[in-house]
Amino acid sequence: MKEKQKENSAIEALKYVKKGMTLGLGSGSTAEIFVKKLAEKNKKEKLDLTCVATSNKTMRIAIDSGLKVVGIDLVEKIDLAVDGADQVNSKKELLKGMGGYAFLKEKQVDYKAKKFIVIIDESKLTKELTEEILVEVEPAKAIEVIKNLSEKFDGEIVHASNKCMPVETDNNNYVISVQLHSPIKNAKELEKKINKIDGVKENGLFTRECTVIVGTDKGTKTI
């Protein structure tokens, strides 16, 4: 059921794709469905698309599917970015990063895009953001960042781990998990506050304007 919802949202997002566009390709399971559907559309309609990937995994899927992929530094603009999310609240603020810890590159691409579309299934909708905030940090400053975050926020702040080892991102940085004891308030302010801490590269709060396409069992709804 959830897979059908993901597919429905991905297919709906294809309607925003136009010939000659530069597209930002998100990361995560729903975004991967979109990439594969996009490749089919590009081949069938000869759309001459240029794509910027937000993770190594997305890049491999896109290239293997026949899409043209370039680095973000090689494009002057991104017309449209399509990405998933772990949670979306009633203000259309997002928490991202749990699917592959790619939120630094996701934010670089998603925030550069002229239009940002978020594709999700119904389970990702929530009144308030309650999941953990992921923070990408320079490895040499990780301990100091944890100490700084612990002094500023009420919650459990630890290294994200994979088989007892610190999680490393595509950028060779570490990921810190911030698990607050209460729902997130003032997400836009919090996003900026975390990023001001020395050693922090980025965090998983996304508060820019976006269009959210929610996949349902029977189709989609756009908010």
Rank of each mutant, 00 (worst) to 15 (best):
E202G: 01
H181V: 00
K201V: 14
E7F: 15
Y174Q: 06
G24D: 04
E132S: 15
A31Y: 01
S150C: 06
D64A: 13
L205M: 05
I157H: 09
K2L: 15
K163V: 07
N56A: 11
E12F: 07
C51D: 00
E136S: 06
M21T: 03
K68L: 13
C51H: 02
L25Y: 01
Y111W: 12
G99C: 07
M165F: 12
I184W: 01
K92A: 09
E131F: 14
E189G: 08
L80N: 02
M98I: 08
E45H: 08
N162R: 14
E122W: 07
L149K: 05
E7T: 09
T126V: 14
I33F: 09
D170L: 08
M165C: 09
S182F: 14
A140C: 10
C164T: 14
I61Q: 03
T58C: 05
K96Q: 02
V135N: 07
E12Y: 08
N195L: 06
G71P: 00
V69K: 02
V17D: 04
K124W: 09
K201M: 14
K196N: 11
E136Q: 09
N171I: 07
C164L: 15
E122T: 08
L104V: 14
G97A: 08
E189L: 12
S55F: 02
I223W: 11
E128G: 00
T50C: 05
S182W: 12
I223E: 10
M21W: 02
A102S: 12
E106N: 00
V69S: 03
Y174K: 05
E189Y: 11
A142M: 08
K115S: 10
V158Y: 12
L25C: 02
D48R: 11
V88N: 02
N42E: 14
V35D: 04
G215I: 08
D154Y: 07
L49D: 08
E131D: 13
N162G: 00
L14R: 04
V35E: 06
E7W: 13
T207V: 09
A85V: 00
N203V: 01
I63C: 10
K152C: 05
E151W: 05
L80W: 02
L14F: 05
K2D: 14
T54S: 05
S90Y: 13
E132V: 00
L25H: 03
E3N: 11
A10H: 06
K18E: 15
D73N: 11
E12S: 10
G84V: 02
N171E: 14
L23P: 01
K92T: 00
E128L: 13
K37H: 10
D48S: 13
M21R: 03
E122N: 03
L80M: 04
L23C: 04
G24A: 06
I197F: 07
K107A: 01
A85Q: 01
S65N: 06
I184Y: 01
T126M: 11
E209Q: 11
T126C: 14
L205H: 03
T130S: 13
L149V: 02
L134K: 09
D198T: 15
T207M: 02
I72E: 09
V158F: 13
K77F: 10
K19R: 14
I133C: 01
K201W: 11
I194R: 00
T130G: 09
K115P: 00
K127L: 12
D79H: 08
K218F: 12
I184C: 04
L125Q: 13
K147H: 09
K114D: 13
K115I: 03
L149D: 01
T130M: 12
K68F: 15
